[in-house]
């Protein structure tokens, strides 16, 4: 087990490093520097600025400086937001993304698993069709269409007597009411995936030999499902949980744009449209590292669910 973790870590590091290096090179291949602005700056000031950010050094040296800063947890200064470091921007945005994303992951896991079990046990019943229908919606209606439709229904068409919509159309002030629609959107998308996979996994497990044995022993259905079938059926769910959690927590780019949530996704889109290179690079690096760690955790979770997997 420990040697497996070690081996996985040894692979995770070059992955992260490759992404960082590629992004860094891409950033430096583009013409124009951060201080090429319309405002004329005297040569001395420019030289000082460049020296401060090590821009007068050769590229490999700048890269090593950047890696060194990264190792110390410093993502650098923002190009566009004066006086803001990328770290402080991330520190503001991360809690928003983590709250909304975390809530939606928990909700979609619970609802998805329950719906999946119900659909698998009652194939071709109404609940089965609901799960399959949700799955198809998730496939064909992208989140950036579903989000605006949710706003249209719950914030514009459905009104309180005082003329306001039921729910706010977007924005964020920490109140729970601002979370409902974004969490609902992310949950709706992920419930579809998780529900379908849970359904397929449980149907397959229920037809295996050890379940037949359990039935033959005369165990009640509840015990069969929850004691015996659930754990193996959850393995495929665990395999999608990694990507689902990564995208929900760290990169809910579309959701945060639709609902103008000040999270990481919104930050990266703003950074992209302002051409704030360090901000975008820093966020890509951060999210890649988080993604690599999450994938590692998911692989380890397999071992807990499936004793047949040995490392």
């Amino acid at each position: 087990m420990w040697s497996y973790i070690l081996r996985r870590l040894l692979w995770a590091i070059p992955t992260a490093l490759a992404v960082i290096t590629l992004c860094y090179l891409m950033l430096h291949l583009t013409p124009g520097g951060p201080f090429d602005s319309e405002r004329q700056v005297s040569a001395a000031v420019l030289a000082n600025l460049q020296a401060k950010y090590h821009l007068d050094q050769p590229l490999w040296r700048q890269y090593l400086y950047y890696l060194n800063d990264l190792l110390h947890g410093d993502l650098g200064a923002s190009f566009r937001y004066a006086d803001w470091s990328v770290n402080s921007l991330v520190a503001q945005a991360l809690p928003v993304s983590a709250t909304v994303g975390g809530l939606s992951v928990i909700l979609s896991l619970v609802i998805g698993v329950i719906l999946g079990i119900a659909a698998a046990l009652r194939q071709n019943s109404i609940i089965d069709y609901v799960v399959m229908f949700l799955g198809n919606i998730g496939n064909t209606i992208p989140s950036f269409v579903m989000g605006p439709v949710l706003i249209l229904i719950f914030a514009i068409w459905l009104k309180h007597p005082d003329g306001n919509g039921w729910l706010p159309a977007g924005g964020w002030d920490g109140h729970a009411i601002y979370m409902i629609l974004p969490v609902a959107l992310l949950t709706l998308i992920n419930v579809a995936t998780i529900g379908r996979i849970m359904r397929a996994g449980l149907i397959e497990t229920m037809s295996s030999n050890f379940i037949r044995t359990a039935r033959a022993k005369g165990l009640p259905l509840r015990t069969i499902v929850f004691r015996h079938a659930l754990k193996p059926a959850l393995i495929p769910v665990a395999s999608v949980l990694g990507p689902v959690a990564i995208s929900a927590i760290t990169a809910a780019v579309v959701t945060e744009t639709v609902f103008s949530l000040p999270g990481l996704g919104k930050l990266i889109v703003n950074g992209a449209s302002n051409r704030d290179y360090t901000l975008v690079l820093g966020l890509v690096v951060l999210i890649t590292v988080i993604a690599v760690v999450f994938n590692l955790l998911v692989d380890l979770a397999y071992a807990l669910l499936d004793p047949r997997i040995r490392y």
Binding site: P14, T15, C23, T250, A251, I268, A272, V284, I287, T288
Partner: peptide, 19 residues
């Protein structure tokens, strides 16, 4: 395998920003 692990929408955003 490595590229699967990368959050690719973000790289796409980075590429559109840069190029």
């Amino acid at each position: 395998d490595m590229m699967y692990a990368v959050p690719y929408l973000l790289i796409a955003i980075l590429m559109m920003t840069l190029f």
